[in-house]
Simulated scan of single mutants.
Amino acid sequence: MNSHTRKLLTIVTEAVLESVLIRDIELLGAHGYTVSDVRGKGSRGVRSSSWDSSSNIRVEVLCDEKTAAAIAAHLQAHYYADYAMILFINDVAVLRPEKF
């Protein structure tokens, strides 16, 4: 197996942001993303998926380090103050690096 290291940027945030986040992620150079409906509890309380206005999404982006850093910096600057949002970045091994 010949693997290559890429970054997995995970964003957990309010579902209302989905369309603008996807636009931002694509403009900042990501080749793709995965969006999932999620629920949980954090500093802003319980977020359930039963009501659209209070639901959360998880957006996962596999990309190179430069793209992950650019997306993370942009989201922190534009959304952290006003929305429930967390970001985390992990190293992952991929088998087709040209896709990411």
Rank of each mutant, 00 (worst) to 15 (best):
Q76E: 14
Y80M: 13
R47V: 07
E60C: 02
E98D: 11
I86F: 05
R58C: 14
C63L: 11
S55D: 09
F100M: 15
A30R: 09
L27C: 10
S53L: 14
M85I: 10
S3R: 08
R39T: 09
L28W: 08
D64I: 02
S49I: 01
D52L: 13
L95N: 12
N2Q: 05
A15W: 11
F100D: 13
N90G: 04
S48H: 09
A84S: 11
I89L: 15
T67M: 03
A68D: 05
A93F: 07
E14S: 15
N2F: 14
L8E: 03
A77K: 05
G40S: 04
C63H: 07
Y33D: 00
I57H: 02
M85N: 06
V94L: 00
H31F: 15
G29I: 00
Y33G: 00
A73Q: 10
V92H: 03
D91Q: 01
E60I: 12
I89Q: 11
K41G: 05
I89W: 00
Y79C: 03
N56T: 10
L9V: 01
L75P: 09
E26T: 15
G42N: 07
A68Y: 12
L75Y: 12
V38H: 10
R96M: 07
S19Y: 02
S19L: 11
H31K: 15
M85W: 04
A81M: 06
E65K: 13
A93I: 05
R47C: 09
N56R: 06
V92L: 02
K66M: 12
K66L: 12
R23G: 06
V35D: 01
L8M: 08
S55R: 10
S3E: 13
I11Y: 13
D64W: 12
G45S: 10
R44N: 06
S19P: 02
V94Q: 03
E65T: 09
R23N: 11
R58F: 07
H78C: 11
T67H: 06
I89Y: 00
S54I: 13
H4P: 07
A84I: 01
L87I: 04
K99N: 12
M1A: 08
E60D: 02
A84Q: 09
H4G: 00
P97L: 00
T5M: 06
A84E: 13
K99L: 11
V46H: 12
S53C: 12
T67E: 02
D37V: 11
A77L: 08
Y33K: 00
N2D: 14
L87P: 14
V12P: 01
D91R: 05
Y33S: 00
L27Q: 10
R6C: 06
L75G: 04
K7H: 02
A81R: 05
A81Q: 06
S3Y: 12
D91K: 02
V35F: 11
S48I: 10
V92M: 04
W51D: 13
T67W: 10
L9A: 12
Q76A: 10
A68T: 08
I11M: 06
V20H: 08
A81H: 05
D52E: 12
Y83I: 04
G29C: 00
A93C: 03
R39A: 15
E14R: 13
N90A: 13
A81Y: 02
V46T: 11
M1E: 07
I11K: 09
C63D: 08
V12F: 00
L87M: 08
L95R: 09
